[in-house]
Nucleic acid binder design. Structure first.
Length: 920
DNA sequence: GCAAGGTC
């Protein structure tokens, strides 16, 4: 065909490709063939765009064509520090199950001159459009690329869109790309909290704790937050007793219950006084009778959230199940597209035709007929809920059915809801007459409301009042209220009962599924298509449970996580983060901000937040400890999770240098890129505690280099050094350098649990790991090096300072002042001793031993690591075994790389910090 | 093994 151009058209889903092809071709000469993907068929027809003859190929994708993932090096949980995920490279790729669609697009794009994008006209649709563009342009660089803008699948709109093609909008697409922050935030927090907590506690859940994933996400966590917050409100509610006066009156016409217009009083004495007044003068006088018309309006047209809420409320169906059933009804053509925000019908929708289809139904057919009969006056154009996603109409029936073979009860129930809801929408509101009666008893006012049977009103106003209208078809709702007898102003009667009743204030209810959906909708958490997924995720992750009444409670796990972050002072479990992101995405979509700018700001903030949360991880641990027993499972490989970033690695320039504590309690700062990068700084073995702070060193470059708060074992550092030290590993810190030189470092050998290895100057190693010390019975050091002896010989003065004649004794392990206690054992009853108040240290020393100058010692303990691990690397005993460090690049405390030999004496068997020749 | 968002 000369002069004919080939146009490839792509829709977001197969149904749209089919509809648009049908409309454009007017079903003339429409040919259908299969593509490589079984769901996405191809339609072919001829069409003319502004006089240009075109051969049209129409196919579809199924939502997003591409997914986002980290590059290989960052995908494994232990491959990097989670903090690295804030800047780790990510890639977009077409997953396995979408490759068939991609191949079809490539094949067809090669043969075409034009590409016309018919994706949904929202931000996601625009983003998918650019995914399609990427795939097609890669195989055909000369494609002319255009966008069709349409908001409904009706002839006029579709032809108009085809004749008025526009350019794709990169801002819309960019706004969606900015969402990659979710992956980074989600993955970093998920890895962090999973690796931090999973193995440390016995988390009682239906799954094996070892496989548990404690996920975090900007949507799922605030959803959990709503559940926990309400639960806390319920928990913290303190019932308060109140008193109220109730009055009832029975007549021939029935019973009226009058409520005290004061409501209730919390003061019993006051209530009794008022009640006594009423009882003493109990005649009731009617002071006011008011008849009012009351309208009850039908609901707005149905969108996804309303469908989910109503199915939950009326049938206790979960939102996730509702969407599954709705999807099936949609797939088989009985209802319209179920994922829509729209709750108003377009003026172009033929509402009558939809009603007509339902006329034959045995249950609601007669109502449909009444609606179409203009004389009944039942018809009313539907109201608007004010939402329009410009892509889909409200959910409505698209095909008549009295129930199909293969439908479950839930299919019937949901189809019925969609039909009845639609019929209700196009109906008049229910109209009723409500009467309010007020009475006076001894000066106190009471009132009753309800509908009255009043001859005169019935005769005069029957035409207007008490018409059920839409309630006749919408059987899920009713009028409520009761009938009350007729009263006239001035009438007097004696109450049938007049009682002083007590009650207590009640807490709010736990959130129902409908409540939860409302909270999410209001806060902008998730979309109509994903909200049910976030709710389901809470259940799948064992963060929350749902009772038979569809009420949600947090599990211990869910509550502990929220509590942990709450204790940190972060609102990570509140919807603010998501709202901020949504705001920024809007800014990108209108061109006020660039994607890169928004991403950079968001990630910078969240990275700082993550960094801070990790510094405060103890809050999470404490919160977990409230609910769960500590686990004795070996904690393996979570050092990265618990590790804290000190600076960027200056060796590989890619990963972070992280403060780590090995199983023996020794600290080091190592590259998170290990084993690819082996940059490491070994810290003094005398460190009891170390934590990275948010303070940044003002002199070390390249920055930032975060300062570390060290706490040394006083006993293991020379006099004149402070046990508490805010240090820098960037090279500026002389104190730290001196301590490393004097005390040595935590050895790698001991980190592997082999016990300390000493390296002599001639390079021969000797191990003392099997020999128990004669002083303290501990292994890990020789008797000559026993810290208890060390303590006595060197620190007796500084640790037993006399104050006011009373000796003060410090713990040899942690340095804290000891408490004087009295022994009560058979051998030593009445004998005084000092012991460390910390339960971590088992240090004790007899009082008479102090005055004798005898050093303290720790009580031998098999499960306490403070003693064993604390000593192993201490005081320059340990060295580095060459055979294990040949592939390791060491750096000194200054951060400078060290060659694999001692720079003092040149001996390759040890490093300068343990050099026996130092100072010679 | 991590998110949220499309859709089948």
């Amino acid at each position: 065909m000369s002069g004919t151009i080939k146009v490839l058209n792509v829709a977001e889903k197969p149904s749209v490709a089919k509809s648009v092809s049908g409309i454009l071709s007017r079903n003339q000469g429409l040919r259908v063939r299969d593509g490589r993907s079984r769901y996405n068929r191809l339609f072919e027809f001829n069409y003319s765009i502004r006089g240009q003859p075109c051969h049209m190929l129409f196919t579809s994708v199924t939502g997003h064509l591409m997914e986002l993932e980290f590059e290989d090096r960052f995908r494994k949980w232990h491959s990097c520090d989670p903090l690295d995920l804030y800047h780790a490279p990510v890639r977009k790729f077409v997953p396995e199950d979408k490759l068939d669609i991609k191949r079809t697009l490539e094949e067809e794009a090669r043969r075409c001159q034009w590409l016309v994008l018919w994706l949904d006209c929202d931000r996601e649709g625009e983003n998918i459009a650019f995914e399609v563009i990427d795939v097609c342009r890669a195989v055909n660089r000369h494609l002319t690329i255009r966008r069709a803008r349409f908001s409904a699948l009706i002839d006029r709109e579709i032809h108009h869109a085809m004749q008025n093609l526009i350019d794709p909008n990169p801002w819309f697409s960019d706004a969606v790309d900015a969402r990659q922050a979710n992956l980074r935030i989600g993955a970093s927090f998920t890895r962090f909290q999973t690796m931090l907590l999973r193995d440390k506690f016995v988390i009682d859940s239906a799954t094996d704790d070892r496989n548990l994933v404690l996920s975090y996400g900007p949507c799922q966590f605030p959803t959990l937050g709503f559940v926990v917050e309400r639960y806390w409100e319920v928990q913290s509610h303190e019932p308060e007793e109140f008193w109220t006066i109730n009055c009832s009156h029975r007549s021939d016409e029935g019973v009226a219950t009058f409520n005290w217009m004061r409501g209730h009083l919390f003061d019993y004495t006051c209530a009794v006084i008022v009640y006594e007044m009423c009882v003493q003068e109990p005649t009731a006088t009617v002071t006011k009778v008011q008849h009012k018309e009351k309208l009850k309006y039908p609901p707005y047209p149905l969108n996804t959230i309303e469908l989910e809420k109503r199915a939950s409320r009326y049938f206790r169906m979960s939102s996730e199940h509702t969407m599954k059933v709705a999807e099936e009804l949609y797939q088989s053509g009985f209802i319209s597209y179920p994922r829509t925000e729209t709750d108003c019908f377009s003026s172009r929708t033929d509402l009558h035709a939809i009603v007509q289809e339902q006329q034959e139904h045995p249950d609601w057919g007669s109502y449909a007929q009444r609606l179409l009969d203009l004389e009944t006056g039942l018809w009313r154009n539907p109201g608007s809920g004010g939402h329009d996603d410009k892509a889909h109409p409200p959910i409505h029936p698209t095909k008549f059915s009295t129930g199909e073979h293969g439908w479950s009860q839930d299919h019937r129930t949901l189809y019925e809801l969609v039909v009845r809801h639609f019929l209700a929408c196009v109906s008049q509101p229910a109209v009723g007459a409500e009467t309010t009666v007020e009475i006076d008893i001894a000066g106190e006012l009471f009132s009753a409301s309800g509908r009255v049977i009043l001859e005169a009103i019935l005769t005069r106003l029957l035409f207007y009042f008490d018409q059920r209208n839409y309630l006749d078809v919408y059987r899920y709702e009713s009028w409520g209220g009761s009938m009350i007898p007729t009263y006239t102003v001035g009438q007097q009667f004696a109450p049938t009962s007049l009682t002083l009743d007590t009650g207590v204030t009640r807490p709010p209810s736990l959130l129902s599924e409908a409540d939860l959906l409302s909270c999410m909708d209001k806060a902008g958490i998730g979309t109509d298509a994903t909200m049910h997924d976030h709710i389901k995720k809470l259940l799948d992750r064992f963060y929350a449970t749902k009772d038979s009444n569809t009420r949600f409670s947090p599990t211990n796990l869910g509550e502990a996580l929220v509590m942990g972050y709450d204790d940190m002072g972060y609102e990570l479990w509140k919807p603010n983060l998501r709202s901020m992101m949504e705001f920024d995405m809007k800014e990108v979509s209108v061109g006020n901000k660039s994607k890169d700018e928004v991403l950079a700001t968001c990630l910078q903030q969240m990275k700082a937040c993550f960094f801070d949360a990790r510094l405060n991880k103890v809050k999470l641990l404490e919160a977990m400890a409230v609910f769960f027993e500590r686990s004795n499972r070996a904690v393996g490989g979570d050092n990265y999770a618990a590790g804290e970033v000190v600076r960027q690695c200056d060796l590989c320039q890619e990963s972070s240098m992280v403060l780590k504590k090995n199983r023996d309690g020794n600290f080091m700062v190592g590259c998170s890129g290990f084993p690819q990068c082996r940059n490491a700084i070994w810290l003094p073995g005398s460190i009891l505690e170390a934590a990275v702070t948010s303070n940044i060193c003002s002199s070390c470059n390249p920055g930032p280099v975060y300062l570390i708060q060290f706490k040394f074992r006083q006993i293991e550092i020379p006099p004149g050094f402070n046990a508490n030290h805010l240090g820098c590993i960037g090279g500026c810190d002389d104190t730290l350098r001196q301590l490393i030189e004097i005390c040595g470092t935590g050895s790698r050998m001991s980190a592997r649990g082999r016990g300390p290895t000493t390296t002599s100057s001639n390079g021969q190693r000797s191990s003392n790991r099997h020999n128990a010390c004669i002083h303290c019975q501990q292994t890990g050091h020789s008797s000559n090096d026993c810290p208890s002896q060390f303590s006595r010989s060197r620190n007796s003065q500084s640790h037993t300072n006399s104050q006011n004649g009373e000796p003060s004794v410090s713990c040899s392990t942690c340095g804290m002042p000891c408490v004087l206690r009295t022994a009560n054992t058979a051998n030593n009853r009445g004998r005084k001793f000092y012991s460390c108040p910390s339960q971590e240290c088992n240090f004790f020393i007899w009082e008479d031993g102090v005055s004798n100058g005898n050093g303290g010692r720790s009580i031998p303990s098999t499960n306490r690591s403070a003693f064993n691990s604390g000593r192993r690397g201490g005081r320059g005993q340990s060295g580095h075994n060459r055979s294990h460090t040949a592939d390791t690049t060491f750096v000194t405390a200054t951060g400078d790389p060290v060659s694999n030999r001692c720079y003092v004496c040149g001996d390759p068997s040890h490093f300068a910090n343990v050099c026996p020749n130092r100072g010679m």
